[in-house]
Each structure stands twice: as C-alpha cells, then as structure tokens.
Nucleic acid binder design. Structure first.
Length: 276
DNA sequence: CTAAAATCCTGGTGGC
DNA sequence: TGCCACCAGGATTTTA
C-alpha cells in the first residue's frame, strides 16, 4: 500500500523527469479514475507546464504554471512510470499523460481505486488533511494536544488523514510497536511519556522507510527495501524482533492489525503498575 | 463524538 | 490442472 514513504519515493524519482516539461495531452482509459472529470482533464491539460513536483500526505502534487495543479492518489495499487511513446497503454494503464519530450507518464492501477485530480488550487483537494508528520511544525507538544482531545483508539485515529497526513496500515502498526503502544489504547489516555515515544516513533519509521524507497508489499511495488525491516506488519506467528514473543494479528476498524502482545500492552503503564 | 458496516475493485491465494 | 469463494485495503458514505 503506498503510504507517505512510497509516495515520497515516487515524488523524488519523478521530479527530475517532469519539472520543466509540458503536458501535451491526456488519454483516459478508465474515466472514473479522474475524479474531477475525464473530459475536463483532456480539454484543459494540453499546454500546461510542470513547475514543481511534490507530496502532501499520500497525494502526489504536480504544480502547473499559472497556479493549477494535478494531484494523484495511488490508493491500493496505483503506480507511476515514464515510458517511451508507443508503450501505451499497458494492461493496467488508466490515464496516460503525454509529455513534450515525446515520452508518456503512465498512471497504472490494477484495482482502479486510485484517483487523479485537476484543480485550480491544491487546497481544494488537500485542505482537510492533518499536519505533515515530518514537518518542523509537527511538534511533540502539538501532537500531545491533539491526542488529548480524542477518545478514539490509536489505530483508527492515526489512520485518519484529517488527524495526521500520510500514515497507512503498515506504518501505523510499525510506529506503535516501536513506541510500545497497543493499537486499541484510547488517545486521550496516553501519558506524556507515551506521547513522547509515539511522536519520534512515527518520524523514525517514516524516515527509515523513505531511505529504503518504501516497502515492497507484493507484485505492485517492487524495489522498496523496508519490508526487510518490518517489525510487526504481516508477521503474524513470527517472533517479535525485540522480545521474541509471537506477533499477533487482529482486526481493528476493518484493518488487519499486527502487534506484539508483550511489547504493546493494552493497559496504560500507570494501571499496569498497580497490578504488579 | 465514536464506531461499525457497506462500497468501490480485481489479482492472488487457499481449498478441493 | 482447474474452478471458485474469499481476502486485502484507503477513503468515503451511511447507519447506529
């Protein structure tokens, strides 16, 4: 699943290929992929120059000359590749963006969940997103304040893009294990010391994954190296790398959830202390 | 407010 | 070897 590190990897890979180029056309092979209208994209895109390539949360952002922007969300199986003219379309190509050097940027997406947006302002798509976990503005103090206002369990809360942008199923589980917190803990019950573990755990997990070009989960995302470092995700029945206890899998909010029952206790440390 | 369920999709997997 | 039911899962929408 492309999450922040995978999208960041796509952004860095595509930036030198795309910045300074101009779109010549757009071919749409699966209209629903274009959330803002396939006909509008085909009509409005030709002639638009690409000024910047970046990322916001899990969105890839192409800022266009004149202020408009193309955003892409890869969802489950979306991927991007620049190919020579004539290679299009592939079996899973949903949208093909022609470039002025003759090559083609392909948006491939086997499961058709991915989306493309053409908007006059990036904020129209990203406006409701929560803070960027790797930005300087995302401090442990700000994180503590947000958590204290929520009664939700940590797992679904951290997956909520309006709470924090960029985490998905893999990196939520990974960061919770690194911090030693149970996925069902209510956010507003965390002690200051626990918040102080979760905040850097998120950053360390994301940065380590970015360094390795993300996680290659299956056939959809070859090339990433982080799957060799996974602590709990998809490791049910295997020993915890920290304590050796077997990793367990449950379902939380309809998501497969992996955790170490010893390193990530359900109760807060304060409550646990009274039992001991 | 929180949570659960349904929806969109199809390649891969496990069972027989 | 072939067939098929079933699963994964990000985000949104609906229902409790």
């Amino acid at each position: 699943m492309p999450e922040l590190p995978e999208v960041e990897s796509f952004s860095r890979r595509l930036r030198p290929e795309l910045v300074g180029r101009t779109f010549t056309d757009a071919q749409v092979f699966w209209p629903r992929t274009v959330a803002t209208g396939a006909d509008v994209l085909c009509r409005e895109l030709p002639g638009r120059g690409i000024e910047r390539v970046g990322r916001r949360g899990k969105f890839l952002v192409f800022e266009l000359r004149g202020g408009a922007a193309v955003l892409l969300h890869l969802r489950m199986t979306g991927r991007l590749e620049v190919v020579p003219a004539g290679d299009v379309p592939g079996r899973f190509t949903r949208v093909a963006f022609g470039l002025d050097d003759g090559r083609v940027l392909c948006f491939d997406d086997a499961r058709k969940f991915g989306r493309v947006y053409l908007v006059p302002d990036v904020e129209l798509v990203t406006g409701a997103l929560g803070p960027e976990p790797l930005d300087d503005g995302f401090t442990v103090q700000a994180f503590a304040r947000s958590l204290a206002q929520r009664a939700r369990r940590l797992k679904p809360l951290l997956l909520d893009q309006t709470f924090l942008a960029g985490l998905g199923n893999i990196y939520v589980d990974e960061s919770l294990h690194l911090a030693g917190l149970h996925p069902l803990r209510r956010a507003d019950t965390l002690a200051a010391a626990e918040v102080a573990r979760q905040h850097p755990a998120i950053r360390k997990t994301l940065n380590a994954a970015i360094e390795r070009n993300g996680t290659s989960i299956d056939w959809a995302y070859p090339g990433g190296g982080y799957q060799l470092r996974l602590r709990v995700y998809d490791r049910a029945g295997l020993p915890c790398r920290r304590c050796g206890t077997l990793i367990e899998r449950t379902v939380v909010g309809q998501r497969g959830t992996y955790y170490c029952p010893r390193c990530q206790r359900a109760e807060s440390e304060e409550v646990r202390g009274k039992h001991d």
